[in-house]
């Protein structure tokens, strides 16, 4: 079938009927859906229309590259945005705050595919410091990870700044200062730990954004991940691949958010014990 497609030979009527029957497309929609669902529950997502191999195997082959990219980007997001967010909040309306906020504004407005090309142009074409495309050592990781994480970094900076600001004027902070707790400790223990809670949720939600962004970034940098594979599958009309891709990414997303909820309870005993918040 792939051969026929590639050589663009118009299929005969019998071949069409046969192919439809083979793929189960001649049955009614509900039947097709429940067959698919039943198989999907047993982790059988069917075979790719193009290669004829089981879809799950194909996707699992590409998945590690994507998880690596999003994982590194998530780490980068946290490492950069948390300190900057705290800095902006502690120096509200002063120079560090203004600079950070300007940076965050740039970050949310810049299209990732354009940023990717700018970075490639600067560091690969002009300076020749970093490889432009593909996957390899750590050097291949740098540009895609920066490109992917800039948007999340910027959103998180703002989010974290707001979260710290909210905690800055709580009574327990005032009380800690009043009883002479050193400023470092006030910021670290009283403000920072409380600000972490909403951030953990935000990070969970951002994972979806990172997965989506990685589709674009993988295409810019020819990164051999699932996102790139899925886009190719769209052009090939390889529907089983797409179904499995959506289900798998959503599954990972949901599981991570479940993990976040558990972490949340661990961070905040008020949630664990279901008590009311004390002002």
């Amino acid at each position: 079938m792939a051969y026929l497609r590639l050589s663009q030979i118009p299929p005969t009527e019998e071949a069409l009927v046969e192919a439809r029957h083979m793929l189960g497309l001649d049955r009614s929609f509900p039947v097709q859906y429940f067959t698919w669902l039943g198989k999907a529950l047993r982790l059988d997502f069917g075979r790719s229309y193009v290669t004829g191999k089981p879809v799950l195997d194909e996707i699992l082959y590409y998945l590690p590259a994507t998880l690596l990219l999003t994982g590194v980007s998530l780490l980068l997001t946290l490492v950069v945005s948390v300190p900057l967010g705290v800095l902006a909040a502690l120096y509200k309306d002063r120079i560090p705050d203004q600079l950070t906020r300007a940076f965050a504004f740039f970050g949310v407005s810049i299209p990732s595919f354009w940023l990717g090309f700018l970075l490639v142009y600067l560091f690969s074409v002009r300076l020749g410091w970093l490889p432009a495309l593909g996957r390899g050592g750590a050097a291949h990781m740098i540009l895609p990870a920066i490109t992917l994480s800039l948007m999340s970094i910027s959103i998180n900076i703002r989010f974290f700044r707001a979260s710290v600001l909210e905690n800055l004027h709580h009574r327990f902070v005032l009380y800690a200062r009043a009883r002479g707790v050193p400023e470092r400790r006030v910021v670290g223990r009283h403000i920072f730990r409380n600000s972490l809670i909403p951030i953990v949720t935000a990070v969970g939600m951002h994972l979806g954004e990172l997965f989506g962004g990685s589709v674009v970034v993988e295409n810019v940098f020819a990164w051999p991940g699932v996102g790139r594979y899925a886009v190719t599958s769209i052009f090939n009309r390889d529907y089983p691949v797409l179904q499995c891709f959506l289900l798998l990414m959503t599954g990972i997303f949901v599981l991570c958010n479940l993990g976040v909820d558990v972490l949340y309870a661990w961070l905040d005993p008020r949630i664990r014990f279901g008590g009311e918040e004390q002002p």
Binding site: G208, E209, G212, G213, V215, L246, M249, T250, F253
Partner: peptide, 10 residues
């Protein structure tokens, strides 16, 4: 439930 960009792509 779905990541927005991924669902849009799908």
């Amino acid at each position: 439930t779905f990541p927005t960009f991924i669902l849009a792509m799908f």
